[in-house]
Design a protein around this nucleic acid. Structure first.
Lengths: 347, 347
DNA sequence: TTGTAGGCGTTATCAG
DNA sequence: CTGATAACGCCTACAA
């Protein structure tokens, strides 16, 4: 067992209260210099350090933030979202001397089961990263009395605090950009409906159409999945190409880069030249976006900044400085590369 | 404040002892089924979950493992060692329901300062990743009574438990491979001396020379740095090329891929063809090793497996099943690509 | 300036 | 089978 405050008190011939006072050095707590010296020396001699747990229990504060995230892939660190997000969070915690505890499970169901015993007392607050909209986790979290914040999710709930990219704005900008190039028929390849980002990006797509006076054509909007799955866009691409040329879209807004890259492959298979015959724009700007041919035009999320902002905001929230329902939406940025161009001229 | 065990006891009309018994469900602790039911329902009704901190204090076990690591780069997750290592550790912790708390600081000095208050009680054990040999951190750690284990470091200390790649063996294999190709003069570009791996790889280099009856030539061994620093190998390369052709080495064993890649650049600048005029072998097998031309022959460390093994072993150590001084050295594997070939024939 | 004592929320060891 | 009660190690009024 480690040495406790009692040993130090005995060694320094004072009470444990005095030891505590000296070692916590509050300005108000006045201790005679000689006593202070005795205590410090005793602590040093005995190699004493206060127990974080006991202190946490007494103070009700652990200086620890929990990250709740789930991932199926074997690697967290190389996940294009989780990785940078983690980096941003860690940077802030490093600066503010907060410990970061990772609560990783293989499913939200499993997370749900173990979460309460984990975060109760253990963490001062929770950062919930990319939750599924269909998971009961948010409800469970609300039951615990721990402050928490959603990262990469900005669902429309007046009670939740969120930090996310401005998906609606980003979707609108992407489509505006395509419209600006001259495109008039633009398809949308959506992501998983369990992430609220997909619906929001679609809303941006809709808004851009509306403001440009373009008709919103539901047959141009296809469901899809954010996760890499080679060939998953074949059907959607084929459906587009099956249309008469005059009704065929000249651009595709893919809701993330996985989708975009798969779409590129599908188009190549069908002999469609990108960007000459079809423009493709992605979302995220993953590393692979520059490795593909043609290099992908895409909407870059400031993921690391989202992580940093989330960490900052949660700390503020723990200190009671955040209004419930606050949503911080960070702007995205269009990175123009080679997969977009004006539409082909009809001859 | 969250609801405590007392409320549940009151609600269920039993003592807190009984609540604790029911909720921890030990086989020995026998509670009447009817009582059990009452307690469970009360807990459910009140939305009660035990406090991990209080439990930790009482049990002396937090089910939490601390990772001590320092990094200067802004990104942990994309670090070619830290990333995979983290993945391996997290995978094991996920399986064994251990929480992982990251203790990241910007320097070992800073880590040293905050470490005691952090890990005392907070963590059941510590994984210390890539410590510097000149840091006092190991001594400080020994002072705390927390079990710990070194990852990516297998220094020669009879008290320390370590998990690492077998650097000596890997260095020996790399040089054996070059000798097998016909090389007789092989240079070594070392890493930072503050990592014990560098000295160990050099020892392997030495052993391979000895067993082949080759003279160990100190002028062929150059100091260097593991960290990316374009141009840092220029001087070493030039020193090699300045030698008379007959004394010039025909191969270079670089102690990591950063060094190898920089060496490739330096050689190209001097118009030396790789591998025709000079073979180059690296260490680590980072992603960039395949992106460079010629693709790098290198020694692959099983980093993820090291992380997994370390997590496993620490858990065993916490449970008292590990002898002090135990060293687990995992084998490396040579990945042959395009940067090595037999030496040029003298004409 | 210093000490006493109660509390933080559990677990675990006793009796009963 | 169940209930007091003493740890666990620290903080912090309140007294002295």
């Amino acid at each position: 067992m480690a040495v406790s405050i009692y040993e130090v008190a005995t060694e320094a011939r004072v009470s444990i209260a005095t030891v505590s006072r000296v070692l916590n050095g509050r300005p108000s707590a006045q201790v005679a210099p000689a006593t202070q010296k005795r205590v410090r020396e005793a602590a040093l001699r005995l190699d004493y350090y206060p127990s974080g747990v006991a202190r946490g229990l007494a103070r009700g504060r652990m200086n620890t933030i929990g990250l709740v995230l789930y991932y199926e892939q074997p690697s967290v660190t190389s996940d294009p979202y989780l990785g940078p997000c983690l980096d941003g969070i860690l940077a802030v915690h490093k600066r503010d001397h907060q410990n970061t505890v990772l609560f990783t499970k293989s499913s939200w169901a499993e997370a749900l089961e173990h979460l309460p015993s984990f975060c109760n007392g253990h963490c001062d607050g929770l950062l919930v990263i990319l939750p599924h909209t269909d998971s009961a986790i948010i409800g469970a979290l609300a039951g615990l009395k721990v402050p928490f914040l959603l990262v990469g999710d900005s669902r429309d709930d007046p009670d939740l605090v969120c930090v996310d990219v401005d998906n609606v704005g980003a979707g609108r900008d992407a489509v505006r950009y395509l419209i600006g190039l001259g495109h008039r028929r633009i398809a949308a390849f959506c992501g998983n409906a369990i992430f609220c980002s997909s619906g929001q990006r679609l809303e941006g797509y809709r808004q851009a159409h509306e403001e440009a006076g373009l008709l919103y054509d539901p047959s141009l909007v296809r469901d899809g999945s954010y996760f890499p799955a080679p060939g998953s866009c074949d059907a959607s691409v084929r459906a587009l190409l099956d249309r008469p040329l005059a009704e065929r879209p000249t651009a595709i807004f893919c809701f993330n880069d996985n989708i975009a890259i798969d779409t590129l492959h599908a188009l190549r298979k069908h002999g469609i030249a990108v960007p000459q015959e079809m423009s493709v724009i992605g979302f995220d700007d993953v590393p692979a976006a520059t490795a593909v041919h043609p290099a992908l035009t895409t909407v870059r999320q400031p993921i690391r900044a989202i992580g940093e902002r989330a960490a900052d905001l949660l700390l503020a929230q723990i200190n009671g400085a955040v209004v419930p329902g606050q949503k911080d939406l960070l702007p995205a940025q269009i990175i123009v590369r080679e997969s977009t161009s004006p539409p082909p001229k009809l001859e």
